[in-house]
Amino acid sequence: MGILEVKDVNKRFGGLKALSDVNLSVKENTVHAIIGPNGAGKSTLLNCLVGKLIPDTGSVMFDGQSVLGRKPYQINQMGISRVFQTPEIFGDLTVMENVMIPLLAKRDGAFRLHAFESVEDETDLRHEAETMLEEVKMLDKRNMHTASMSRGDKRRLEMAMCLIQKPKLLLLDEPTAGMARADTNNTIDLLKEIREKRSITMCIIEHDMHVVFSLADRITVLAQGTPLVEDEPQKIKGHPKVKEAYLGEAA
């Protein structure tokens, strides 16, 4: 029984069948990658996990509870954090504030009227935030406004914002999309480091095979809305069905 169990999920957009009978089981403390060509339904599946979309049929269980019908913020409070394809951070705020907000969300829940406390007084949380920034090597930038930062920095900050909540499951939506080779390698190193330091379950949606094979413990190949195979990376590499899905009938 995995921490995330997706059973018989179907999703249609009008006449298009985006997901058909998807089954997926993500085991605790593993890195599970979902790969597949464009239009395979990877993003649709991810959006079903975080509450942005609701599947037509099927169930999504996380940690023994159903996530269906819950709002994104409720699912986050259950322990799922998400990294977006293009980094989503609080652009007008400082790096420190960006990390403090998820920490406060974790401590105080979805809403608390703490209008007469001071952010300055939260020394414990500030300390925790600084430790996290140190880990992603951004401590020297803590008072910078994030709008002017490079994409790589934004990505690392977003990662820090997710990790500081100590999520049970971290979802990454193409974390290296649009990055230069050097930045991609940095991100891979960062993710590897995170894995070694803390026990964390990750679910990565990725295009880049280099990233997938250097990180994943298990890979699910998705094509035309259906999972083709699920296996260890070594076995996926030479799998005839995968080749077919990626290169077309001719191969």
């Binding site: 975080v50 913020y73 907000i101």
Partner: peptide, 18 residues
Amino acid sequence: MMLRAIKSNQHRLNYTGL
């Protein structure tokens, strides 16, 4: 700070559990 976060990026705020 949360109010400024709403102005800055409501999308991220939702996925941050707020």
